[in-house]
Simulated scan of single mutants.
Amino acid sequence: MKIDNNDRLIGYLQHIIHWSVRVLAILMVFVIVMGVVDVAWTLYQKLNAPPRFILTISDMLATFGAFMAELIAIEIFINITVYLREDVIHVKIVLATALMAIARKVIILDTEQADPMYILALGAVVLAMSVGYWLIHRLPDSRHVGE
C-alpha cells in the first residue's frame, strides 16, 4: 500500500501538535504553582498588614478571586490532559471551565461600580452558559448510543 504524501504530512503535523500540547501542560503546571505561591504571598501580606490577622471584605473578595483563578487554571490543565489522553476536546469540560470563569467574575464583581447593562449582560452569559452545560449534561454519551 502506497502512503500518500498528504497522509504523511498530516501525521507529522499531528505529532507536532501532540508535543505542543505536552509543552502547554508543563507550562500550565508552572503557572499553577506560581499562582499558588502568589495566593499564599498575597494572603500573608493581607494578614500582616494592620490590623493584623484580620481580612476585610475587599481582602476576602480579592482572595476568593485569586483562588478561583487558580481553580480555573487547574481546569484548563485538566482540559489539556484529557486532550492528550483522548485526542478530543470535551465540550462538557470546556463549558464547566467557562462557567467557573464567569462565576469568578460574578464573585469579584463590584456592583457599586458596574454599569447596569454590564450586570445584565453578565447575567445573560451566566444563563446561556448554564443552559448550555445543562443541555450537554443531558445528552446521552455518544459512545454508548446504540448499545
Rank of each mutant, 00 (worst) to 15 (best):
M1I: 04
M1C: 06
K2C: 03
K2A: 10
D4R: 02
D4L: 05
N6M: 02
N6S: 10
L9H: 02
L9V: 08
I10M: 11
G11A: 15
G11E: 15
Y12L: 00
Y12A: 00
L13C: 03
Q14M: 14
Q14V: 04
Q14W: 04
H15Q: 01
H15L: 00
H15S: 05
H18S: 10
S20M: 15
S20E: 05
S20N: 12
V21G: 11
V21F: 12
V23N: 06
L24C: 02
I26Y: 07
L27S: 09
F30V: 13
I32L: 14
I32Y: 05
I32F: 11
V33Y: 07
M34D: 13
M34S: 09
M34W: 04
G35C: 03
G35Y: 05
V36Y: 07
D38K: 14
V39P: 03
A40T: 10
A40R: 03
W41V: 06
T42W: 02
K46G: 00
K46H: 01
L47M: 13
F53R: 02
F53A: 12
I54M: 06
I54N: 07
I54Y: 13
L55M: 10
T56D: 14
I57D: 11
D59A: 08
M60G: 05
L61D: 06
A62G: 11
A62D: 11
T63V: 10
T63K: 07
T63F: 04
F64I: 14
F64V: 15
G65C: 04
A66V: 00
A69E: 05
L71K: 00
L71W: 01
A73N: 15
E75C: 08
I76V: 15
I76P: 08
F77L: 14
I78G: 08
N79H: 09
I80V: 12
I80E: 08
Y83R: 04
R85M: 05
E86W: 09
E86Y: 09
E86C: 04
D87V: 03
D87F: 14
V88I: 07
V88M: 02
V88A: 07
H90P: 01
K92E: 14
K92T: 11
K92M: 06
I93T: 11
V94E: 09
V94S: 01
L95V: 09
A96C: 07
A98C: 05
A98S: 03
I102R: 02
I102W: 05
I102Y: 02
I102C: 03
A103E: 09
V106Y: 12
I107Q: 02
I107E: 00
I107M: 11
I108S: 01
T111C: 10
T111V: 15
E112K: 15
Q113A: 09
M117V: 15
Y118P: 07
I119F: 03
I119H: 00
L120I: 06
L120Q: 12
A121G: 06
A124D: 01
V125S: 12
V126T: 14
V126E: 11
M129K: 01
S130Y: 05
V131T: 10
G132A: 15
I136T: 06
R138Q: 13
D141E: 15
D141G: 06
H144Q: 00
G146A: 12
E147S: 14
